[in-house]
Design a binder for these strands. Structure first.
Length: 886
DNA sequence: ACACGGACTTGTCCCCATCTTG
DNA sequence: CAAGATGGGGACAAGTCCGTGT
């Protein structure tokens, strides 16, 4: 929001256009991010194509086919489960995940209605805001607002230790001047040096050197607690010299955007009422807003108490642990991306670990009924297939074909084994099952032993030292050989993913750091480079597609990752300032005579409103899935008078099926784009992602299609949280949070497959529910009788029940009712979330500062929202000001 | 203008340890 | 205490987007 200027308070009401311009102009200053300098990359990937890629054959286009086919996913999509009503108070725009639902829940349309526009807001939009949709009255079942999802979600308490730490960090939010200092200072100092130097408050000094290295990210081993992050310390991300934002709390210098934000918050007084201009709200949700709006509490502002997570309290006790942890704080110092494209100054790590060599088991497959001797190498591949016998992959012709092609190469030219149909892998499959069983039968002590052993071997690979800070490595294990499991109808499924050897691997490490020893005697790395403009520690070419790479990166809890995560959210927040103009802009272009402009406008609209992905072009040897720019004419159907039905397979071949109401000009434009084309043709034939992004970049520096997803997800969370959080206990607040999280997941189409046991679980719950209801009826009867002085009836077993006083019965009734209600909520939530995955948005799209600030304001322990790994990943956000708003 | 190499983010599934429940 | 439910986290596939060389 451009309220940067003086009277900011309500500038929103002013015509945005004006502001926009202003903002635009200033924007230049914003982060012009200089991207990395071209690194000198050298080596071209050597191409060692394994063998014939004969494959591609069909790649089936028909999506229908795949719908059914792919494993669970498809099922889930098509699944009929009905009942998933959208809960919600807010009308949800939910795209229905399952096709069947469609009819019933047309809720989606609602999205369209825009919020009651405030009059002032720009006139142009006003039309939009008007509810086309509204006219169309869909039967949305407003259903109860029962929004409450079950409260209990994760009632399980977080581990104490974690919580404590957290709290620590939290509290010190604003004041830690020291941190700031350190940050700043670090910039100055060149990294490298810093490492050991700074540790202000750590008590580490006494420890062994090794341990003194500050570290980020937690340790997972048993001693965890000790090491685990106390998130408290703030992590450094703050940074960045060049990057604009600083953490909110701090006063930021000139940066306009930030500053206003700050003030905004600080001013508690202002009623959130109109809260931000609608522009900040996702289009989709805007409509909804109307309804909800009243309720939106103005109230909320209230007490931003100091955060305090409950956990805080405990902290004290355990404080000792905390102390140890302190190392985390250190990490702060890392000056991430300071120099042009430079990502680090010193980098040390131990390279990667390889899977153990194949151990032949000697179990023979049958060919035409006869056991066949195989060499170790041949047996290894046969085993890969055998163990997949019961999966859906093993039934797919493409999979089998690709597997056989690759296996035949290993079998050699005149091997007896020729036809798949004559192969019987059962003996190996059974052997494998037995092995699994054996493993399961091991005692816990044995398992522990094995685990420790593995741990010992891997330990050194788990950590890297970046600019003096110990950071966790993400994936230091080289991928083992196997059969490629592509998602959806992938043309290469079943191909052999050959074993990766040291000679396939390029190591990236600091110039002065010791080169990791090659773990396999007698072999050596393909290459060792020292490129500090990239963050990877190692990479190899993907054996399935040699033009692609597999990288070893630092873990999500590292400063490097945290830094870029923060930049991502700051960019999305920046979009908030531009979004109004952008919307005005594309709305105008819906009718532009220039077809390319029109297509850009419509595509941008879809990306903004529906959170579609950009949609890069794909090769023929990949599953054919689409995104916005690659939508085919058959993926969008016009539903008069002004609705569009989308049906396509997106990333990971997840089906996107949604019907939405759109502005008439959009509806018409889509009709034009479709006309004269045949099935399979691109809807946006004049467009691709680079053109689209180039255009977006003109509207806001650094803007790309994916920013809209981040923006819409985060603004939705922020908005819903602030609108819907009322009083209540922690459990109820968590319900509100999860509800908002769910909305976001629906917007982003984050699906998950329904667990096999889902229906069984539901019916079990139903039974319990019936029992409870019976109990309730019994109690009511007893109460009635008790009031009249009669004894209770016999219970089911014919035994006489205790004679209770009416008051006691009433209490029991109340308890039972509460149980029933909770159960109803739980069931509803379970059903609702059956196909919705909340985790993806939490990890990738929701600015953690929104969650942290909300937790602080409402005294919800952050551990109820973020698990251990999320706490580590979002350490950089923990000290956010309670007033932070996205 | 564009294909492509390259780097990094996003996304789902699956295994397994742990918690819950009966 | 066993069987089932849950959730964390790893594995790894599949996107996005940038820069470059032609």
């Amino acid at each position: 929001m451009a309220n940067s200027y003086a009277g900011d308070s309500e500038d929103d009401d002013e015509p945005l256009c004006f502001k926009r311009n202003k903002s635009v102009s200033k924007k230049n200053e914003l982060n012009a991010e200089v991207k990395k300098i071209p690194s000198q990359k050298n080596d071209g990937p050597s191409k060692q194509a394994p063998n014939g890629s004969s494959s591609h054959g069909q790649n089936s286009t028909g999506q229908k086919a795949r719908v059914g086919s792919s494993i669970n996913r498809s099922t889930s999509n098509s699944g009929a489960k009905n009942s998933k009503e959208s809960t919600a108070p807010l009308p949800d725009k939910s795209k229905q995940l399952s096709g069947t639902n469609v009819g019933g829940k047309d809720i989606k349309e609602k999205r369209i209605e825009k919020p009651p526009v405030k009059p002032n807001s720009d006139s142009e939009d006003s039309d939009d805001e008007k509810p086309l949709s509204s006219r169309i009255s869909l039967p949305v079942s407003q259903k109860s607002n029962s929004a409450k999802i079950s409260g209990g979600i994760n009632s399980s308490g977080p581990s104490p230790s974690v919580s404590e730490k957290t709290k620590v960090s939290i509290k010190k939010s604003s004041e830690d001047s020291e941190d700031e200092m350190s940050l700043s200072s670090k910039f100055q100092l060149k990294p490298g040096v810093s490492g050991s130097v700074k540790q202000p408050h750590d008590s580490d000094e006494e420890k062994p050197l090794s341990s003194r290295i500050p570290q980020n990210g937690n340790v997972k081993r048993e001693n965890d607690q000790i090491d685990s992050p106390k998130l408290s310390n703030k992590r450094p991300l703050s940074n960045t010299s060049n990057s604009v934002q600083s953490s909110v709390k701090k006063a930021k210098p000139s940066d306009a955007s930030v500053s206003n934000k700050v003030k905004h918050t600080s001013v508690k007084a202002e009623p959130k009422k109109e809260e931000e201009d609608d522009d900040n709200v996702p289009i989709a949700r805007r409509m909804t807003k109307c309804n909800a709006s009243d309720s939106k509490s103005q109230t909320i502002k209230k007490t931003p108490s100091k955060v305090v997570s409950s956990s805080l309290k405990k902290t004290n006790k355990n404080s000792k642990k905390i102390v140890k942890k302190s190392k985390y704080s250190q990490s702060t110092k890392v000056p991430p991306s300071s120099g042009e494209g430079q990502k680090w100054t010193t980098l040390e790590h131990c390279g990667v670990i390889f899977p153990p060599p194949y151990k032949p088991h000697g179990v023979k497959i049958l060919y035409n009924g006869q056991p066949v001797d195989l060499t170790s190498e041949q047996e290894e591949v046969a085993t890969m297939f055998a163990v997949m016998k019961e999966t859906e992959y093993a039934t797919k012709p493409k999979f089998i074909e690709n597997f056989m092609n690759d296996w035949r190469v290993i079998l050699g030219r005149n091997h007896v084994i020729k036809k798949f149909e004559l192969c019987d892998f059962t003996p190996i499959y059974e052997w494998h099952e037995k092995e699994k069983e054996k493993k399961k039968q091991m005692t816990t002590a044995e398992k522990k032993l094995v685990k420790e052993e593995k741990m010992k071997q891997e330990e050194k690979y788990m950590w890297a030292v970046v600019d003096g800070v110990k950071e966790k490595v993400g994936n230091f294990r080289v991928e083992p050989p196997g059969l490629f499991r592509g998602r959806g109808e992938h043309p290469k499924m079943g191909k052999l993913k050959k074993r990766i050897r040291p000679r396939d691997i390029t190591i990236n490490i600091g110039k002065d750091a010791p080169v990791p020893e090659c773990p396999i005697p007698g072999e050596r790395w393909k290459e060792v480079k020292h490129d500090n403009t990239v963050t990877w520690l190692a990479f190899w070419n993907d054996p399935i597609n040699p033009k692609e790479f597999k990288y070893v990166f630092l873990a999500a809890s590292s400063s490097l990752k945290g830094q870029s995560d923060k930049e991502k959210y700051e960019k999305a927040r920046k979009l908030k300032e531009y979004i109004h103009d952008i919307r005005v802009n594309y709305t105008k272009d819906f009718t532009n005579k220039d077809i390319m402009k029109r297509q850009i406008a419509v595509a941008t609209y879809l990306i903004d409103k529906l959170a579609l992905r950009a949609g890069n072009e794909k090769d023929d040897d990949e599953a054919d899935t689409v995104g916005c720019c690659t939508l085919k004419v058959e993926n969008v159907t016009l539903v008069p008078p002004n609705q569009l039905q989308f049906d396509f397979l997106g990333k990971d071949s997840i089906r996107y099926f949604n019907t939405v109401e759109v502005e008439l000009p959009v509806y018409k434009a889509i009709g034009q784009f479709k006309s004269g084309k045949k099935e399979g043709d691109d809807l946006f034939d004049k467009l691709d992602t680079s053109k689209l992004n180039a255009h977006l970049k003109e509207l806001m520096p650094g803007l790309t299609a994916k920013v809209f997803r981040t923006y819409n997800a985060s603004i939705t969370l922020d908005d819903m949280l602030n609108r819907e959080t009322k009083g209540g206990d922690v459990a109820e607040k968590i319900v509100v949070y999860n509800h908002a999280n769910k909305e976001v997941a629906i917007i982003c189409n984050h699906q998950r497959s329904v667990s096999k046991s889902h229906s069984a679980q539901m019916s079990k719950l139903n039974e319990k529910m019936d029992e409870l209801k019976a109990v309730l009826d019994g109690l009511k009867t007893d109460l009635m009788r008790a009031k009249k002085g009669k004894p209770p009836l016999k219970d089911a077993d014919g035994k006489q029940k205790r004679n209770l006083a009416p008051e006691a019965l009433e209490r029991k009734i109340a308890q039972t009712n509460a149980k029933i209600e909770k159960m109803e909520r739980d069931m509803k939530s379970k059903e609702d979330l059956k196909t919705v995955a909340l985790g993806t948005s939490k990890i990738n799209y929701l600015d953690p500062r929104i969650s942290v600030a909300w937790c602080k304001r409402h005294e919800v322990p952050i551990e109820k929202i973020f698990n251990k790994s999320l706490l580590a990943k979002f350490a950089w956000a923990m000290d956010v000001d309670p007033d932070f708003r996205f």
